[in-house]
Write a protein that binds this DNA or RNA. Sequence first.
DNA 1: GACTAATTCGAACGTTCGTTCGAACCCAGT
DNA 2: ACTGGGTTCGAACGAACGTTCGAATTAGTC
Lengths: 215, 215
Amino acid sequence: MATPSAATRVGSRPQRAAPVSESRYDRRLSEILAHATEVFCKKGYEGASMRDLSRESGMSLAGLYYYFESKERLLYLIQKHTFSTIVQRLKSRLESVNDAEERVRVFILNHLEYFLANQAAMKVLSHEDEALKNGFGEEVAAIKREYYRICVGLLDQLKRDRGLQFATRIAVLSLFGMMNWIYTWHNPRVDADATALAGEMGDVFLRGVLGGEAK
Amino acid sequence: MATPSAATRVGSRPQRAAPVSESRYDRRLSEILAHATEVFCKKGYEGASMRDLSRESGMSLAGLYYYFESKERLLYLIQKHTFSTIVQRLKSRLESVNDAEERVRVFILNHLEYFLANQAAMKVLSHEDEALKNGFGEEVAAIKREYYRICVGLLDQLKRDRGLQFATRIAVLSLFGMMNWIYTWHNPRVDADATALAGEMGDVFLRGVLGGEAK
DNA sequence: GACTAATTCGAACGTTCGTTCGAACCCAGT
DNA sequence: ACTGGGTTCGAACGAACGTTCGAATTAGTC
């Protein structure tokens, strides 16, 4: 390798974890990820070329490869970061809420708030679902599975507390559908904000499942 | 043009509309569209190369261009045909149903039945939403708008008949989200069939909106 | 079997793709 | 002023892309 220092850095945190301020490297990488997210959102993963990313981020084509070793790895970094953040925020919010119905509402609000605030990132996450090949995709898929399981847990809790009866899997996936489809239609100039949307979707969904008494 | 006859054929029905049996040309084109749909579904529009399509359909790379003039036009043909069919079936089914709630259920069932029976085609339709550039996409977008308006009409009728109050736009788009998201999770070996799914989704959605009395 | 038109194909076109390489640049510590 | 490592770049690589063209093959009619 001609640039061993680069090779050791790519894909791993800097050796020292201590310093409070991000290193120059970390800051630059974040900027590139942000620009790349926009481009992937606009043109799709396959449709966006490395030259597009170069133009948008203001860095030369070759320069990009100092920060990640391949286009696929770049998509992985974006997806991993985005998804980890949303799961982490959700866990922190859920800690302070006990009522089963309220917890479901927190889930919806957390999802929609992050979705609308980081619309480009979430579109890339939703839309480029199967773009990562063997190994690369596995880790993202694991986070996704965890997120899904959390939602299943919330609905099962609701079912137990209220003695309801409905198919949890279908309910969860319907809820994800309602929320994730937003990236195809939400227009910030026409549509309400996250709080209002979360309220309306929460109303529809919760009335829907709460009505499911034992038949 | 070296092959004017081909040029006149591409993209337009054969001159005579009379004969009952499809021409050899029409039959072959349908086969190619079917194979191309599978490939687009598996690898995405941008990710699928003309050489992939050639391999899958058993026709030479150059041979494909006898049936359509560009890759983009091919995607257009697939989307147009798929979407037209689903709208047409819906209209025919709605003719015999009058009750507002039942009409919404017919809408859901029609959508899910076609979705699951032609999963690949519907995934291409949902996923490659913005792939068609200026002009090409406009016609497909128009059909989509019509389909959307039909659903808005059904829900408005329901609101009027039952004196309900909810945001139609959000309700419609939530319903589309529930239904269209299926392509990301449905597994025919695990999940129920279209009729059962339409029943469950219809229950959740209709209880959700029917609970929306005037506040 | 010969003639014509419809259909198919091999081979190549020019372009763009993701990636690599070595040289240059910048800047802190001396 | 000099050095050395972290950072950036221009130029190029081979491969794959969508598309074209003229010749070859096939199917249909006499």
